[in-house]
Design a protein around this nucleic acid. Structure first.
Lengths: 209, 209
DNA sequence: ATTATTGGAGAGTGTTACTCTCCAATGTCA
DNA sequence: TGACATTGGAGAGTAACACTCTCCAATAAT
């Protein structure tokens, strides 16, 4: 399959595919001559993955590159593998976020986050803790109070989602990484949409009942 | 308070505030002369809200404008009020999403979504149904299968989150709209972060146990 | 009286994700 | 064999976005 075939198979314009090739988001095809290369199903899958990650998960191309790099070149330690990919994922998502802001997370908010984390037995990865603290601070600054009870309700729901996430991983451990990372990135927006749907019913019930 | 005071109170540069004023994201201050205006706490709150919505919730300024417009000018019907704001929220979030794509949601995927919606007693707002269908299609195209069981687990978690969301609404119904819309937008990223934290523990347990 | 700051409007900037133009080399079909 | 389309590759151009800068005459502060 040549580049026009790849374009036809994925619905992505040839010019865009050339751009992705240049940026290293899609590996080069097997060169059959100086002006010809062959693309196969792995290229089709890669292109579709890039599109899903940008269009559906809302990642920037730079973030996509980082995630793909983490998946293509997995760290060897069996225990650290998932964690490392997870870290890459978290870091990639946070690109373009402000680090070391003037309004950095103060100790009160951080304490609140650490308390929750300890309660749930979660990890205290500073990247995640800071992000959560920042999000709580932003909500507060916008005049939306996040009560402890509400935060715990969200945390309980997150625990259930995470349990479901991990239970989807069946098969070779080599695939686990890919499944969890991609699955999470692609189902984040799905979860948000489901929340909207559920809210509309809940608000109808509240209005009618 | 003049514009430099507003800048000091919010940490947003004067040039950016002028830009927000021009774009109508922040209402003009009370003019005290031809080259002077007075800003008060409502302006501070508005600026902080705009920042939270863009930086934390990731909305574009155009989306922020739509959300603020829906909040500032609430539709009168008491039952439709929350629904209308919700619709504005959903539409605002979806700006920049591709409508009427070539790979539009096919009937099989839509059927799956409608089945889930019926099961849960959720609304079948075509905007949300199409979005969910599109997200399922994207995940599938990227090689990430979303099983019925997994989807239902996410739906159950979404239902619990929505219940918590609605339970936070206490007080005047005029504020309910604001609380739910802003609360949801600002806690979507929070939920995502919580999911990451929960996943890391779950994966540790899976690796060790 | 002098100096700084203001509101306002226009133009300029940096980033992102393409999209277009050009090229000689190559493939395809008559 | 020759006409014509397509290819890979590289550079430049584009559109949207969110600022940021420059300028101005009119105040305000000292």
């Amino acid at each position: 399959m040549r580049i026009s075939g790849l374009a036809a198979a994925t619905g992505v314009p040839v010019a865009t595919l050339k751009y992705y090739l240049r940026e290293g988001l899609v590996p080069p095809g097997a060169a059959t001559s100086r002006t010809q290369a062959d693309y196969d199903d792995t290229h089709v899958a890669r292109v579709r993955l890039v599109r899903a990650l940008t269009e559906s998960a809302g990642l920037s191309l730079a973030a996509v590159r980082d995630v793909l790099a983490a998946l293509d070149d997995p760290p060897m330690s069996r225990h650290g593998q998932l964690g490392a990919a997870h870290h890459a994922l978290v870091a990639a998502e946070g690109e373009g976020m402000s680090h070391e802001e003037p309004g950095a997370v103060d100790d009160e908010v951080r304490g609140r986050v650490l308390e929750l984390v300890a309660e749930r037995g979660w990890c205290d990865d500073p990247l995640l803790v800071d992000r959560l603290g920042e999000q709580l601070r932003a909500a507060d600054a916008a005049g939306v109070a996040v009560s402890d009870g509400y935060l715990r309700a969200l945390a309980a729901a997150a625990d259930r989602v995470a349990a479901a996430d991990l239970s989807t991983v069946r098969g070779e451990p080599a695939d686990a990484l890919r499944q969890v990372v991609l699955g999470t990135l692609l189902t984040d927006p799905l979860l948000v949409t489901l929340r909207r749907m559920a809210q509309e019913r809940a608000s109808r019930e509240a209005a009618e009942g």
